[in-house]
Amino acid sequence: MVEIPYNVEARPDTGLYNAKLGIWLFLASEVMLFGALFSSYVLLRTGDPNFMTIPHEIAEHLGGHGESHVWSDQLNVPLAFLNTLVLIFSSVTMVMSWVSLKLEDFGKYKLWMGLTCLCALGFMVIKAIEYNAKFSHDLFPSSGNFLAIYFTMTGLHALHVIGGLIVNGYLWGPGAKMWKTEPERFTNRIEVAGLYWHFVDLVWIFLFPSLYLL
């Protein structure tokens, strides 16, 4: 194998190493993906006067939960609030794991990265509880377009969390071996994984108010 130039060190004129430019380009495409989802949400919500209204038959079925006739009241704000905190905290632990590597403290790195993974796991558990509560009340994507949007957007976001969890888990476990052989390259990897992870956090920051609070 030949060495690809600027795999580790930055190219002088762009000031970037390859993977960093690569991840930003990937995130740009992610912006367009979630942009399309948000755009669809706006279009559907403003286009259908009954978008937020729970149909009678479902409202009756909901019983005690059906006092309100607006879909967004069915979502669990406290749980989502908790999840927001979990995700924000995981963003800090992620960036701290990178700081630890910059300070050449591998033990601290393991700690912060481990915490990041735990937060991701916690986020998924809370998400599962939320979904489960919906299903147990017979609320599915087909119940109405608000729920359809809710499940699609949070579901796609959850897939991104799982993706991040896999990558971070790898970098915490088997992938961490690289620290011994190529510390600089490994630090770059953490930075790149971090950029992705912060983006996942960023998406949630917009998802949370637009789905739960409005």
Binding site: M32, L33, G35, L37, S39, S40
Partner: peptide, 10 residues
């Protein structure tokens, strides 16, 4: 890069 993701969403 920028035009394909909306179709993926669709």
């Amino acid at each position: 890069l920028l035009a394909f993701p909306p179709l993926e969403a669709a």
